[in-house]
Amino acid sequence: MTMTLFTGLSAFPLTPMDDEGRLDADLLGRTLDRIVTAGADSIGLLGSTGGYVYLTPEERKRTLRAAVECVDGRTPLIVGVGALRTDTAEDLARDAKAMGADGLLLAPVSYQPLTEEEVFRHFEAVAGDLPLCIYNNPGTTRFSFSPDLIARLAEIPNVAAVKMPLPANGDYAGELRRLRAMTPGGFAIGYSGDWGAKDALLAGVDSWYSVAAGLLPGPALALVRAAQAGNAAEAERIDSAFQPLWALFREFGSYRVMFMLAEVLGIGHASPPRPILPLPEACRGRVQAALEHLVDVVGDRAESPI
């Protein structure tokens, strides 16, 4: 299995759309170029930050095509293929392979609550020729993977990793130890939830699937490299710089904050898909202040025009 694809920093960019819902390929390209230039280990295209559930299959194909052309093999692309129906997810996985993606990310998207057996069969059908990461995101899917189900899925060929939510009890090391004992050697275990990244990384997880890195890959990568080197003091310092941004993420949801952050950074304007509304204009000052604090502490690695 390709564990190295699912290690280090995976940066999750927005899928920028204009007010009419059309992909802004130029803005996507500028965002991806920042991630590639910073040296992120992978790009998590069409994840939750990429708003995949709000896009039609054709819009998702168009986004992937533009991303593959822009990245041009410089950074591995992991593509979200979650869909309400198994056959749609299978089609998206085949398209990802055909268009040059390096790996897949699959969440069990559903309207009806799913059983563990239904989720297992879903993954069994979608897993194919590309390494696949289990997307355990109960905050949006309302389905939480049990350790037993993760272990069972890890036996499917090409199911190579899991993207976990932050543990409610904060016991990263304990959860990591239990999952490693239940899964094959080489199975990669990573976490999302940016405000818990520092603790997860210092506990020894394989990867950080980062929302913030979609627009701020420089400081996000600095945090990862400090933790990977065992430099807890430096990781703490960089994480402290992110705290105002983490507070905004927790209060408003990272997805909404990212759209305004793109504008504050001067990268460009994109509209979230309705019914999601942009942050109120009154929040702009807080987003600006969070970015300035990050730049003050971390320095020019923030890649900000401020």
Rank of each mutant, 00 (worst) to 15 (best):
E251I: 10
V119P: 00
D33W: 03
G103H: 07
R178C: 05
P272F: 09
L32I: 12
A101N: 08
D129S: 06
L153E: 02
L45R: 10
R237I: 13
A96E: 03
L104G: 05
I35G: 03
S110E: 03
P57Q: 14
P278L: 15
R301K: 15
A40C: 07
V109M: 07
T56N: 00
L179A: 06
A197H: 12
L84I: 07
P273A: 10
D24R: 14
L27K: 08
R142P: 00
V205F: 04
I267M: 12
M258P: 01
L179D: 04
N137S: 05
A89L: 05
N169T: 14
N169R: 07
R286K: 12
A98Q: 13
S240N: 06
D296H: 12
L46P: 02
M3Q: 10
A302S: 15
M99V: 11
M260Q: 11
A220F: 02
R178L: 14
M260L: 14
Y135M: 02
A173Y: 05
R85V: 04
I238L: 06
D18K: 13
L92A: 06
G139M: 12
N158A: 02
F6M: 06
T140Y: 01
V109L: 10
P131N: 12
A212H: 06
T75P: 00
L32G: 05
S271D: 13
M260V: 11
G268R: 14
A241Q: 08
L132W: 01
E90Q: 10
L223T: 11
M164E: 15
S210T: 08
A67F: 06
L77T: 10
W208D: 02
L130V: 10
A83F: 04
G299Y: 12
R142M: 05
A290E: 09
V297T: 15
G44R: 11
M258V: 08
I156P: 00
R180H: 11
R121G: 00
R30C: 04
G29Y: 09
D148P: 00
G170V: 07
R142H: 07
A160M: 01
D206V: 02
D199H: 12
L149P: 00
A220T: 09
I276D: 00
P244C: 15
T140L: 03
L166G: 06
M164R: 11
L245H: 08
G170H: 05
N158M: 03
A247C: 04
P167M: 14
A161E: 00
T183A: 04
G196V: 11
A98S: 11
V298E: 03
A270V: 09
D91Q: 13
L166A: 15
P108N: 09
